[in-house]
């Protein structure tokens, strides 16, 4: 079963009191997220990432299209009972301590009163706020509030966790800790849906991503699928290539770059790789490895946005 399944999910807003304007926040978004995976939703500001999550959690209502979460149509109480959510800009009542905040949100999730204190203690330890348990949240830094937000989202042991910019304002050590928590949750079977601008983090932990632009999905796939440049290969050689071999190879219309014992080849067709290997072997050059060149998710994202802007 898919954790999230949407079909043509559309959201149009009307803004302005007198001069009404239509804003197409989402346009026919069809996505599916596998259970037990970490899914990243990327996109520039205003692409519709937060709106998408809000529709799934009935914080906003779709204009058209359908969606189901954990098998339930959106809007059902049973769905929310099994989801955790950390919004992008979350506010907690400043007069409550960290423990009281988690107890309060535990109550809203319908947890039994007897389990709340132990649950709060466990979660505060998990997110590294054990020593701040009895401090009022108005004294918390942004990073600490972010950690508390993550604990709040986990209070009901969700099967599906929605996180909107979870590491925003968190220091590098904290980010690593949050990443580790998310990976552990994934290993325990929790599905995680992540909205983030930090593409390096998405790249590190997400299995699949979708890229939104102006409310439309422009790419979906695994990180490997999106970032692997299919026809660029790096060939590691046992020695530097002699000039004769370079000449032999360059006659074959490949785009080649030689650097010490590395050869980067941009091909027109995958079969050309065999031709290069044959030439190298014929000239007695040992091959230590062949890898497909990858680009970072950030580079891929920027390249894609440029392409989309040109269209």
């Amino acid at each position: 079963m898919e954790a999230i399944q949407t079909a043509d999910l559309t959201k149009h807003y009307r803004t302005g009191l007198l001069n009404k304007k239509n804003i197409n926040a989402l346009e026919k978004v069809s996505l599916s997220v596998e259970q037990g995976s970490i899914f990243g939703l990327l996109g520039p500001n205003g692409a519709g990432k937060t709106t998408f999550v809000k529709l799934l959690l009935s914080i906003a209502f779709p204009t058209s299209g359908t969606a189901s979460v954990l098998g339930y149509p959106i809007g059902q109480r049973a769905l929310k009972e099994q989801c955790g959510y950390l919004p992008e800009s979350h506010k907690y009542p400043g007069f409550l301590t960290a423990t009281d905040t988690l107890i309060f949100f535990g109550r809203l999730n319908g947890l039994p009163e007897t389990a709340l204190k132990d649950k709060a203690k466990y979660l505060l330890e998990l997110v590294g706020l054990k020593d701040w348990a009895d401090v009022k949240t108005k004294k918390f830094s942004k990073g600490m509030l972010q950690r508390l937000g993550l604990a709040q989202a986990l209070v009901n042991d969700p099967k599906l966790l929605f996180l909107d910019e979870p590491t925003d304002g968190v220091d590098p050590v904290g980010r690593k800790e949050i990443r580790d928590i998310l990976v552990n949750l994934k290993n325990a079977g929790t599905t995680i849906f992540l909205n983030s601008h930090l593409l390096s983090e998405i790249e590190m932990i997400c299995d699949n991503v979708a890229i939104l632009k102006k409310g439309c999905v422009v790419r979906t796939g695994s990180i490997a699928d999106l970032t692997t440049q299919k026809l660029i290969y790096n060939i590691q050689l046992s020695a530097q290539i002699p000039e004769d071999t370079k000449v032999n190879l360059s006659h074959k219309h490949f785009s080649l770059e030689f650097k010490d014992t590395n050869l980067a080849a941009t091909l027109n067709d995958k079969s050309e790789l065999n031709s290069i290997i044959d030439t190298l072997r014929a000239d007695g050059i040992g091959i230590e490895g062949v890898t497909q060149q990858k680009m970072s998710l950030e580079d891929y994202f920027i390249q894609l946005m440029k392409e989309e802007n040109r269209q």
Binding site: K54, I59, R77, K80, Y85, K91, L108, N109, F162
Partner: peptide, 15 residues
């Protein structure tokens, strides 16, 4: 109804 508060409340299993 403030942004960040209402999102949290409405995401909970409370009508």
């Amino acid at each position: 109804l403030e942004k960040g508060t209402i999102d949290l409340f409405l995401s909970k299993p409370l009508t």
